[in-house]
Simulated assay, not measured.
Amino acid sequence: MSDNNTSTFQAGQTGLVVRIPEAEPAVRAWRARFDPSARAGVPAHVTVLFPFLDERRTDPDVRSALADVLGRHHAFDLRFESCGRFPGTLFLRPAPDAPLRRLTESVAARWPEAPPYGGRFTEVVPHLTVVDGQDDAVLDKAEADLSGALPVISRVTSVDLMAYDGTAWRLRESFALRG
């Protein structure tokens, strides 16, 4: 859930994320400086689906359906051993990424009115954003710094629904994966 500037977040927006607390020691300082979502309260994460439905639509029926869709997926392990880049963005690359892709595909299939990233990209690439909206010199520095902190290993057991209240992103509910 990364944007170039926190003012682009809109009150009522929601997103589904997989928190990666094990990555925090390695990425916290970089994210605090160069990831608007971190400054707005989003922990280290891999996005499952953003934007999701407007928060007013995430009623008990939607939350029950989310629990059902997500609960069909098994918990899984991830390793972050390397960095990747998009233009202006440095991220940690999860492996394997297939379980994350399946989570995104299943939620997007259930709610086709909420395509990943608003339909801006033809392919969704699971990633943990570390630096966003910076030049290559900053990305190079961050990548060099992170090299000594990798790999990061994480067990994924849930997906979180987060909502932006106009000031910060807040956890609304956590949905358990199977096992």
Rank of each mutant, 00 (worst) to 15 (best):
A163V: 15
A65S: 15
A144V: 08
S158Q: 12
L171H: 12
G133H: 05
F9P: 03
I153D: 13
V107P: 01
V18Y: 01
L49S: 02
L78C: 11
V125M: 05
V152Y: 01
R120I: 14
A95M: 10
I153N: 11
P51T: 12
W30A: 11
F91Y: 15
E105F: 05
H73F: 08
I153G: 14
G12V: 03
T89E: 13
V159Y: 02
R31W: 05
L90H: 02
F80A: 01
A29V: 14
S106K: 01
E55N: 08
L53C: 03
S154M: 06
D160S: 13
A67I: 07
T47L: 12
R56F: 08
E24I: 07
T157Q: 10
L171V: 14
A44T: 06
A29Y: 02
S174N: 12
L139M: 08
D132S: 15
R33Q: 12
P51R: 04
S37G: 13
V159R: 04
A29D: 14
V18L: 07
H74L: 09
R93S: 13
A98Q: 15
A168F: 14
V125A: 06
T89V: 14
T8C: 06
P94Q: 01
A11K: 11
A75E: 14
V124Y: 07
F91D: 00
I20G: 00
V17W: 04
P115G: 13
T157W: 07
A108S: 15
P94M: 00
H45L: 11
Q10M: 12
R120T: 14
V46I: 09
F34E: 02
H45C: 14
A149P: 03
I153C: 13
P96Y: 11
P151I: 07
E105T: 12
P25Q: 09
A168L: 13
V124W: 06
M162W: 14
L16G: 02
G41W: 04
H74N: 09
T122P: 04
N4W: 09
P36Y: 07
R172P: 02
R120A: 09
A95I: 02
S7K: 15
W111G: 05
Y117H: 13
A29P: 06
Q10G: 12
R102S: 04
A40Q: 06
T89F: 04
P25M: 06
F34G: 00
A40D: 01
I20W: 00
A38P: 00
R19T: 15
L177F: 13
R110S: 09
F52A: 04
P96H: 08
G118H: 05
P115F: 13
